[in-house]
Amino acid sequence: MAEFPDRHASTPPGKSAVSPWLVTTLLILHALVGVALLGGITHQAVSLLRARPDRNGSFLARYAGVSPPPFTIAVIALYVANVVLGALIYPSYRLNVRIPFEEMSLGWAIGLFELKEHFAGIGLGALPFYAYTWRPDSLAAHRRDRLGITLLLGVIVWWDFVVGHVLNNLRGLG
């Protein structure tokens, strides 16, 4: 077990001063916002990939038959909200989850989380360009960029969601 000097006597070593119920609430919110974001970005990406409208009435045709531009603002708002929520609970992960992972020699789990965190940050930095490619005056000029950046955000969101669940199953924050 990592040992730290007891500089603040009220906080036991290896424990965050933030109350567990607050961390759990934020973690649940993080997951719920993640579900909404997953739905929004997947809907937009599928409709972008299925450029030719299919009017046969199938589920996939209806799923892909939406107009993708209105999803942009929702995706940006949900993405930013989810990164903020993740950043708020990150210290609890660092103290209460990562240290046990290190003790259990679960290096791959730490690596998965590190990738999740870095991919989320890169996605956040890509949001202004994502918004730019979806502007009406950029639609024609940045067709391939729009497809690439939207699919990339979709991959990041799916990766972060799945990894978050796997790590939470290994050891939750509570």
């Binding site: 991919f119 890169i122 890509a126 960029d145 690439g148 990339l152």
Partner: peptide, 20 residues
């Protein structure tokens, strides 16, 4: 331009390879 974040993600994978 979309290749820039892809390249940065690959750099991250490379730098974190020790965990795997």
């Amino acid at each position: 331009l979309w290749l820039f974040p892809v390249a940065t993600m690959l750099v991250c994978v490379f730098l974190l390879r020790k965990f795997f």
